[in-house]
Design a protein around this nucleic acid. Structure first.
Lengths: 135, 135
DNA sequence: ATAAGGCTTCCCATCATGGGAAGGTCAAGG
DNA sequence: CCTTGACCTTCCCATGATGGGAAGCCTTAT
């Protein structure tokens, strides 16, 4: 299997497969005589693992750790769970930040007439003007 | 006021002030004879505006547009509201993505005993193994 | 034999930010 | 007056994960 086929089979772009190899996330595959990378079912399985981890928001570094644990048949599941739990915490922190932005923006947008007139509470807020209460 | 003081007064790092100037987000300030940037209250006000917009998650490009509208005394507030509304939408999309990740991860973590044993539903999921129902 | 399409490596761009080096400037104190 | 330390200047590099694209080689089908 060439890199293009491994890409289709795993959902990881050829570009990223080479990148993951270059940073040591995955091992260099065998090559044909003409220097083409050759992948087998195992490599594709690994790529799918990586893809899934990335889809769940794990960084490449966390993914590397998870890959190592996956391949270590004697790992303690607690190690994996710790990584996942920390990641959940990070995601929730991020979500809270974004929600806080949304909350503020929704309030401002609600206060903005959104018509032809120039008066705009959104700009007023950005400019540091004290918001008018109620309406 | 030197850049360091403008930085403290606005909450924007000196590094970023120079960067914003280099990309044209803010205008180049006057310089002293010895080439030091000199800022006044207006510039600091603009920097605070930028800081606030960035804090609310607007990209630098969106911030540039908002700055332009702020300075255009005859803008229509609808233009501002449109940008804010689009941004709220983008944030909500992002939030939904993150929440989806959290939901999956919480389920997996819940299914993982997190002890010394190697058996781990989290890794099984990443490896593409069909999840066992119930628990 | 030729054309199309896939592969290789290498460089560059993104987005917003920080780090740090090398060198100029300013203010305070000995 | 001179030193010291804190500031300023520009310039280059790094981050994280990804894509774009060029130049050149290989393979496959016509």
């Amino acid at each position: 299997m060439n890199i293009g086929q491994a890409s289709s089979a795993s959902g990881v772009s050829a570009k990223m497969i080479r990148y993951y190899e270059s940073i040591g996330l995955i091992s260099p595959p065998n090559r044909t005589e003409s220097n083409y990378r050759v992948y087998g079912a195992d490599e594709v399985h690994t790529l799918r693992f990586v893809k899934r981890a990335r889809t769940l928001g794990f960084s490449v570094e966390e993914t590397a750790t998870l890959l190592g644990l996956w391949q270590d048949k004697s790992r303690a599941s607690a190690e994996v769970k710790d990584i996942a739990t920390a990641h959940i915490g990070a995601l929730e922190t991020k979500i809270a930040e974004l929600q806080s932005m949304v909350k503020t923006l929704k309030h401002l947008a609600h206060c903005c007439s959104g018509d032809d007139r120039p008066n705009c509470p959104i700009l007023d807020d950005l400019a540091g003007m004290p918001a008018k209460k109620g309406h």
